[in-house]
Design a protein around this nucleic acid. Structure first.
Lengths: 336, 336
DNA sequence: AACATTAGGTTAAGCGCTTACCTTAACCTT
DNA sequence: AAGGTTAAGGTAAGCGCTTAACCTAATGTT
């Protein structure tokens, strides 16, 4: 069996209180005893049980991370950064994927609470203010990353999605495109990006209309399917803004099926700058979210809240346009 | 504060033992009391504390997953499957990325033990038998996935790596290639794949020699760098077997820099069949590891060991060659 | 009527820790 | 020398739960 504090105490000939004080550096213990106990702990390979410690009111040093899909490169890269910073600060991470399902979101929040996590980090895809307010009431620290929840006062790290949509669209406009479509899943951040998109169109006095509708999922197939439909419309776009790299790739694949060359006949811009954008051919022009900073920052805020050392805040990072090869100057018209 | 079992008991006018029995479906409780207590639990939104439960000798219902890098698509896809199956069976997952570093591996194993995980799943990249033997001695259930550890009796799910290397190489040989190179990181599975590669060469009486050396990392840049060097050798290969999709992509990017067309001038075959293989252009021919099955299977074995319901076993899945567009018949010689 | 049985509970110990409070002995003061 | 300090460490309660052992009232048995 794993040794307990009792084993250490007995072996060292002291009380468990003494051992506990040594573990927690409480002082009031002579150097001699301390050395001795420490040695015994080594010998026995003693590790205090986090469970038992937590039961006495201390932290569990674990944090729950709820995100839509760990297999999505954006989230796995983000999770990795969060994990790294977490470990640096002494926390372990429990990850749960919701597939954008409300029931799963609820279920996992319950689950993580029952595991006594010290805090919860919610990554995008969440619309349910009520759930969040409940958590707030229970004084469980929570933080939101990769999404802004304007109405709630809560630690947040996100990019300026509006600006992201705006710079993506502007880039296309400057390349000469006038018929620019957007494709996005219906979540808050994307609505912001969409707003940025519309604003850019307005600022440059473009009024291209196409049959916009939100994508039901954020993956390659969905992007492809929707792009196909849009290509069939009377005045098809010459450029696309997609709300993530996967959708962008779907669009490009659809374009290929139609015999369209990217970027010659169609420009496509993605979002997130995941590894996929980098290795895809053509390499994707995309709006980069600074994933590393986001992960580190949200972890710091969260731990700050747990330890009570930091006041709550919202950190808005600026997105950056990464220009690669999937966008280009409009050269020939494809429809007439 | 979160309600405890005492709050429920008091509210319901019974003892905490009764409540506990109801929670654990122990019987010996009248329907009436049961209903009533259940109602109170609802009302109070009572959730038993996993911490406290664990302290009484029960399981924590959490499992540690140690893998090299969560940001690597292969592992994030695998982690997702493991997570899914885990949640189905009532377990949460704590994920730790080691970056193939031994110290981190050790550190995380300690950490997860102190958090009283019920079991540990180790995913590839681990060479340290001693560590594993120690864990075994402590009777902590552990399982290995995506890697075979032939000398140790331990739950394992892996593919037949030898066969994977063999079928990849054979495919290239059948396309007419005679100068086939391999690129891989130095871990056990890859040595097996390499063995399969050599076996195929031998079976078809090819004796192409090139300056093989293991890659220090498994990412795109490394693949690119190493491929560049190999291209510079006197008799460059016309085909590559890479030990994962990222390296394969690196090779293709190097080829492009050399003005080589894939697959016309160079065939490249990857490993893992991650999303990247699918979306890359040209879509990658690759050896597929059945990630979904692997994840589910390893979780089932692990939970089987925790509950004592299943005997230990090694499950060897068969890899499958996914033929896409990065390999083709050798048409023209590039060197003479 | 006297007793056994059983369904439906309760009591209390214990899981591995932390911590407020107590004890003890050595050392100071005046 | 009596009382006061102080350093070093011990005692025991309590965190939220499980469970073996025990209790009690109602029912069945003869």
């Amino acid at each position: 069996m794993k040794p307990t504090i009792y084993d250490v105490a007995k072996e060292a000939g002291v009380s468990i209180a003494t051992v506990s004080k040594i573990i927690n550096n409480k002082g009031g213990i002579s150097e001699k005893t301390k050395k001795n106990v420490l040695r015994i702990m080594e010998e026995l390979r003693y590790q205090p049980s986090v469970m038992a410690t937590a039961l006495t009111g201390k932290n569990t040093k674990s944090i729950g991370l709820i995100l839509p899909d760990l297999a999505n490169p954006f989230f796995s890269e983000l999770a990795r950064k969060i994990e790294d910073r977490g470990h640096d600060l002494g926390y372990s991470i429990m990850i749960c994927s919701t597939d954008y399902k409300k029931e799963k979101e609820k279920k996992y929040i319950q689950l993580l609470k029952s595991k006594s996590v010290d805090a919860l980090i919610l990554a995008s895809g969440f619309e349910n203010e009520e759930v969040i307010n409940n958590l707030l009431k229970e004084r469980l620290p929570i933080a939101i990353v990769a999404k802004n929840f304007p109405s709630i006062s809560i630690n947040t790290v996100a990019i300026d999605d509006f600006q992201g949509g705006y710079i993506a669209t502007t880039h296309l406009i400057k390349l000469g495109h006038t018929r620019i479509a957007m494709i996005a899943r219906d979540v808050y951040s994307n609505r912001e990006r969409l707003r940025g998109y519309y604003q850019a169109l307005r600022d440059y006095e473009l009024d291209y209309k196409f049959d916009f509708c939100f994508a039901p999922e954020s993956n390659v197939e969905t992007g492809q399917k929707i792009a196909m439909e849009i290509f069939d419309s009377p005045m098809p776009p010459t450029a696309f803004v997609a709300s993530n790299d996967l959708l962008a790739i779907g669009v490009i694949q659809a374009a290929r099926q139609r015999g369209l060359n990217v970027p010659r006949d169609l420009s496509v811009i993605g979002f997130d700058n995941t590894i996929i954008a980098e290795v895809f051919d053509p390499p994707l022009t995309t709006v980069s979210q600074p994933i590393g900073d986001m992960g580190k920052e949200i972890m710091d805020l969260t731990v700050g809240e747990i330890t009570g050392e930091k006041s709550k805040r919202k950190v808005i990072l600026v997105p950056e346009l990464i220009i690669r090869k999937s966008t280009g100057i409009l050269t020939n018209e494809i429809d007439d």
